[in-house]
């Protein structure tokens, strides 16, 4: 396997959104390997599997059946094994409460789903090429929300 690949995971219950997501990465000329999950339970099952390759960046939708984004976030943050995963919240909502809650619980960036495919591509490419170490060390509530 080529280690230059960036492993990306997305947990989102919306089929269209998953499609946009994978299409966007297909069109972007970055070496990525994208896996998508239909809900939080599926995602956690995958992550907890010993054989799974852990993603570099994990995109989490907030509103999902069975296990929602915040619950996944809490579980991941409690496990030492997942400490290297950068977590990006990927949601339709941009309400203060959601931003605040996920920031406090240790997410690395908050992305409001854009309503333009070109914008989506731009955001995703920026997020995956982000220097996470640099970003995380200077993380505060103001730069937590990804602005375009």
């Amino acid at each position: 396997m080529n280690t230059d690949f960036i492993n990306i995971c997305l947990a989102d219950d919306d089929e269209d959104d998953r499609l946009f997501f994978t299409d966007a990465f297909d069109e972007l000329r970055i070496n990525t390997k994208v896996s998508t999950f239909n809900d939080g339970v599926e995602l956690m099952n995958y992550l907890n599997n010993e054989d799974s390759i852990l993603p570099n960046v994990l995109f989490l939708d907030l509103n999902m059946p069975k296990k929602n984004g915040v619950e996944c976030l809490l579980e991941i943050k409690q496990n030492e094994k997942f400490s290297d995963i950068a977590i990006a919240i990927y949601s339709t909502s941009s309400s203060e409460e959601h931003i605040e809650e996920t920031f406090i619980n240790g997410a690395n960036i908050y992305i409001k789903k854009p309503n333009d495919f070109e914008k989506l591509k731009k955001i995703l490419s920026e997020v995956v090429t982000l220097n996470w170490q640099y970003h995380t060390s200077g993380l505060n509530k103001d730069n937590f929300l990804m602005r375009m």
């Binding site: 269209d16 959104d17 946009f20 299409d23 339709t92 789903k113 854009p114 309503n115 333009d116 495919f117 070109e118 989506l120």
Partner: peptide, 9 residues
């Protein structure tokens, strides 16, 4: 948002 995204595509 989806309507808009689809239109943009």
């Amino acid at each position: 948002r989806k309507i808009e995204t689809f239109i943009s595509r």
